[in-house]
Nucleic acid binder design. Structure first.
Length: 850
DNA sequence: ATAGGGATAATC
DNA sequence: GATTATCCCTAT
């Protein structure tokens, strides 16, 4: 491969020498997706080449093209023109591209192209990529730090503030499922069983741009019993609640329509997921991991979806794409989170309450990953920028826009109305002019209602509520995405190996426990709201994040749970109070990880959970088997094999992944072991606290945002242009410092200053703080800050990670996640150099050419 | 399928 | 003639 094999001629440009030099592709943009490639090999140029006409061609490149255009084809007449004629990009298309990048993430070209809401003039994914590269060179650099060619100094991707117009890569934000959606989901399940692709056809989901995988993710979280009954592995370990009550019954099955799917999606990036490629594989291979498959959302492609998935899973995911957040959940993170509530109590009823409140991130769909660059602060989502920048007039639009949206949602589609039109960045482009785009707005939003309280669960439930989510260390470790589904949890812990001490192995999931606590706490919260924003906001991008950041020592958690974390943290604190028998629990934990402190905390938590324990599963099981879902199919497993645990050893023996497909009966078996349920501890309280906690930190939420946040933000980044790349925090987020943390951590370490700057304490500051923290972790930077808020946060974080630490979750982060760090180029550098170099490169060939 | 380098048609 | 925007090709 490298060289040309064939090439016959080359003309001017000599190819480069070897190929090796470059490292190709690692961009920040996508998370890592592995690609597979077919590699084709050389293309055969021969074919292409052939022809006379051209001449030349060199190996590689041969373009057939032009020259020959003439050639006709054999066929008959028609010529084939091989080359495509040049089509300039219209502003509208460009806008679509931007929207698509914010929805699906930069780099997920195919997904963007497939998005029914976006229109392109017969473009290919590569065309999108090229357009992105040429039109938003500044953004390109950030996302693709490895690129050495096609550089330009133009900057069109940043708002006046300096924030990038693109969200991070990942994009999608999470959009909580609405009650209606939950109802539809349940109804769909009853009709179609686990054929998510069929279910997703319901207009309500289409409107929300949910992907089939999103439905699955939501279903898993919202109706865990049913999910498990259907033979799927519950998220993590599972355990979940159980109780007799389980819900139930529904299922039905059937039918499936299979459908194909529709959409695509892709997920956001972030994650690494192996998935994509997965499919290629032909044979075997692949699979191993499958982890990917699991849940993540990423994969998902809409289209294939379900089916595909099922089939594929084993290998992985579906692949596909990922993105989606918007559509789906791709986010890995998302998964993690989740959970929440359980409906537990009443299965049937579930739908009713389920609503939004419950969901956790995952369900939100987002996809998100966020990667890098985009961080931004965009205050308000997209609109914000528009506002600022653009014409003043435009602002109103945005405002309205914002307002309209539900609190949570916010996200929106990105661009929407806002501003493109007004603004001009485009205009920069000589050729393009500014015109206004019309963008369509999308309407994602809707709202979810947040329920604020979600009372449900907890209290009564006693038993179980929460489940866990896993917190597996393992899982976390890698990426969420992969893990998510997989889980494996139980096994993991169970393994003897893992716990040396063994004190308890019985507990197996210690980690789980921890998780549970946390999550459980969250449940109450109204929270969603909180994160809602964060996620929702397009601009933010944070969603995804994951990353681990630990504060110095502490790792936060890697958990993916962004939103959650917050809550959780808070809750955790509370929890501590409760200790029960620590003894049992603790030991395990310590062994594993050792984090010091943690133990205490954990223990308490564990205790709580411990109480509950097992039992439920059975009940559930029963239910399940009764109605097995349709699914079955193959779904082979999502195997995913190992989850990689990077760090820690444990991972279990069998592949974890397995879970899935189990027939109901079987399922139960499995489940049984793993689960333990627990009760959930107290709940609510924590919640409360948590909120306030955050509150302090951040200002009132949204309100401010919508208003116009931008201003503040601006301040922060004085540097403006320079900063462009710098991460900023989204305004929306306010609530969620944690999230932010993750997000940022990886990458941008360096300049911390930017953002910090202004804020003192104000709201803005909060954001800033968040960042700081993150950085702190990651980057090093220390200093946090002074502000009280900061402190508070820190404490919270520590507490949190304490927990996590035990869990193991926290620790490292998955390698996969952002690579960025490594490759990362500082923005500044990039910019500076840009001008110069860029051109030249091309020049060289240019010259050559003629 | 995407990243990244290259080539060429279209512009400047 | 120098650049740029779009298309192409290939390695991954």
């Amino acid at each position: 491969m490298s060289e040309p094999s064939t090439h016959t001629f080359s003309f001017s440009a000599p190819p480069p020498s070897n190929s090796t030099l470059k490292q190709r592709r690692v961009s920040l943009a996508l998370p890592s997706s592995p690609r597979l490639v077919p590699a084709c090999n050389f293309r055969d140029d021969t074919g292409l080449t052939f022809q006379s006409a051209s001449m030349p061609e060199r190996k590689g490149k041969l373009r057939k093209i032009a020259d020959d255009a003439a050639r006709e084809p054999l066929d008959g007449g028609l010529v084939i023109q091989q080359k495509k004629q040049r089509k300039k990009w219209s502003e509208e298309e460009t806008q679509m591209l931007v929207t698509g990048c914010n929805t699906w993430g930069v780099g997920n070209w195919k997904a963007i192209l497939k998005d029914p809401n976006l229109k392109f003039d017969n473009r290919s994914p590569v065309d999108l990529k090229d357009r992105f590269r040429t039109y938003f060179p500044d953004a390109y650099k950030e996302h693709y730090p490895n690129a050495k060619t096609h550089l330009s100094s133009k900057v069109r991707s940043t708002l006046p503030d300096g924030r990038s117009i693109f969200e991070k890569t990942r994009s999608k934000k999470r959009r909580p499922f609405t009650e209606e959606e939950d109802r539809a989901l349940k109804a769909g399940y009853e009709k179609h069983g686990t054929v998510w692709a069929a279910i997703v056809k319901d207009p309500i989901f289409q409107e929300q741009n949910r992907r089939s995988t999103d439905l699955r993710d939501r279903f898993r979280n919202a109706f865990p019993e049913l999910y498990q009954a259907a033979g799927y592995k519950p998220r993590n370990s599972s355990k979940k609640r159980k109780e007799g009550g389980v819900p139930l019954p529904v299922r039905a099955a059937t039918d499936d329509q299979l459908t194909s799917s529709s959409s695509s999606h892709i997920g956001p990036t972030r994650k690494k997921r192996a998935s994509r490629q997965g499919f290629l594989r032909g044979g075997t291979k692949s699979v191993p991991e499958s982890a990917t498959c699991s849940e993540e959302e990423e994969s998902s492609g809409g289209e294939e979806d379900t089916r595909t998935r099922l089939l594929k899973c084993p290998p992985i995911s579906t692949e596909t794409s990922p993105l989606r957040d918007a559509p789906s959940s791709s986010e890995p993170f998302a998964e993690m989170d989740m959970e929440t509530i359980d409906p537990l109590s009443e299965p049937l009823s579930i739908p009713d309450f389920m609503p939004s409140a419950t969901q956790s991130l995952s369900e939100l769909t987002d996809s998100s990953q966020s990667q890098t660059w985009s961080g931004l602060e965009t205050p308000v989502h997209s609109s914000s920028w528009s506002t600022n920048a653009g014409s003043p007039t435009s602002s109103h639009l945005s405002s309205d826009y914002l307002l309209n949206q539900s609190p949570f949602i916010r996200r929106v589609p990105t661009i929407g109305k806002s501003a493109w039109g007004a603004q001009d960045w485009f205009s920069a482009n000589p050729r393009l002019d500014t015109s206004a785009f019309s963008s369509s707005g999308s309407s994602f939003a809707d709202g979810l209602s947040p329920a604020s309280s979600s009372p449900f669960s907890f209290h009564h439930l006693s038993h179980g509520v929460m489940d866990r989510y896993d917190l597996f260390p393992t899982a976390f470790a890698h990426d969420f995405a992969s893990e998510t589904g997989i889980g494996d949890s139980h096994s993991t812990f169970s393994d003897p190996e893992m716990f040396p001490t063994s004190s308890f192995r019985g507990f197996t999931h210690h980690s789980n426990y921890a998780g549970d606590l946390i999550f459980g706490a969250r449940t109450h919260q109204p929270q969603q709201t909180y994160y809602g924003p964060g996620f929702g906001t397009p601009g933010l991008g944070l969603s995804g994040m994951q990353q681990p950041t630990g504060l110095h020592s502490i790792p936060m958690h890697a958990a993916p749970l962004p939103g959650i974390d917050e809550i959780e943290l808070a809750s955790i604190t509370l929890n501590d109070q409760v200790p029960r028998d620590p003894a049992s629990v603790v030991p395990e934990i310590e062994v594993q990880k050792d984090d010091k402190e943690t133990s205490l905390t954990i223990s308490s938590t564990l205790d709580l959970f411990g109480i509950a324990s097992q039992n439920n599963m059975d009940d559930i099981v029963d239910l399940t088997h009764s109605t097995p879902p349709a699914t079955p199919l193959d779904r082979p497993m999502r195997s995913h094999s190992h989850v990689h645990q990077h760090q820690h050893h444990h991972h279990h023996p069998h592949g974890s992944g397995r879970s899935i497909s189990v027939p109901p009966s079987e399922a139960r078996l499995n489940s049984a072991r793993s689960q333990a349920s627990h009760e959930h501890p107290q709940p609510a309280i924590s919640t409360t606290r948590s909120l306030p906690f955050f509150a302090t930190i951040s200002p009132p939420a949204h309100a401010g945002e919508s208003a116009h946040p931008h201003n503040t933000t601006v301040d922060m980044a004085p540097s403006a242009t320079a900063d462009t790349w710098r991460p900023s925090i989204p305004p929306d987020v306010h609530g969620l410092p944690f999230l932010d943390l993750h997000y940022y951590s990886g990458s941008h370490a360096h300049d911390g200053n930017h953002h910090e700057s202004g804020s003192g304490s104000a709201d803005t500051s909060r954001q800033g703080y968040a960042l700081d923290l993150a950085r702190t972790n990651t980057s090093l930077r220390s200093a946090p800050a002074t502000s009280p808020a900061y402190s508070a946060v820190s404490q919270a974080l520590q507490a949190a990670h304490v927990l996590f630490a035990d869990t193991g979750l926290v620790t490292r982060y998955p390698p996969g996640l952002h690579h960025r760090g490594a490759s990362f180029v500082s923005p500044q550098d990039l910019q500076l150099r840009k001008a110069n170099d860029n051109k030249r490169k091309r020049a060289s060939w240019d010259g050559g050419t003629f």
